[in-house]
Design a protein around this nucleic acid. Structure first.
Length: 104
DNA sequence: AGACTGACGGTCT
DNA sequence: GAGACCGCCAGTC
C-alpha cells in the first residue's frame, strides 16, 4: 500500500459536513509533518478519482488552497462544501473551530 | 541516479 | 494581520 493510498483511506473517513486539515490527514496517514505530500496526493485525486471527498481537506487556516493549476477545481471545492452545510465567511474562510473534524 | 514538483505548516519580520 | 522564507519528502520522469 503506497502512502497515497493511506492518504485516500484517511480522507474517506472524514464525515459529511466536517473538514480536516492537510496536517491532520498527514498525521493519520503516518506522514506527520509532511503535509506537502498530502497536497500532492490530493492533486492527483481530482484528476480522476471520485470516491474520495477531497473537498473536505483544507489548509490549516481553514481556507481553500487556490491554484491556477487546479483549473477551476478550487471553486468546485467551495461549492461542494457549501452544499454540505459548511459556511464561508466574507474572507472565504471556514470556521474551523466549528467544522473541524475531531476524529483523531 | 538525479532533478523536479507539489492542494502545506510553522516561524519570523 | 499579512507577507516572506525555509524545511518536509513521496512520486514521477
Amino acid at each position: 500500500m503506497s502512502s497515497y493510498e493511506k492518504i485516500y483511506a484517511v480522507v474517506r473517513k472524514i464525515p459529511y459536513g466536517k473538514v480536516a486539515t492537510y496536517g491532520q490527514v498527514a498525521e493519520l496517514s503516518g506522514l506527520a509533518g509532511k503535509a506537502r505530500v498530502v497536497g500532492y496526493a490530493l492533486f492527483r485525486v481530482d484528476l480522476g478519482i471520485t470516491d474520495v471527498p477531497w473537498h473536505r481537506v483544507v489548509n490549516y487556516k481553514g481556507e481553500i488552497s487556490y491554484s491556477p493549476l487546479r483549473n477551476g477545481a478550487d471553486k468546485t471545492q467551495r461549492v461542494l462544501l457549501e452544499e454540505e452545510g459548511i459556511e464561508f465567511n466574507d474572507k472565504g474562510k471556514i470556521n474551523l473551530h466549528k467544522y473541524l473534524w475531531r476524529g483523531i
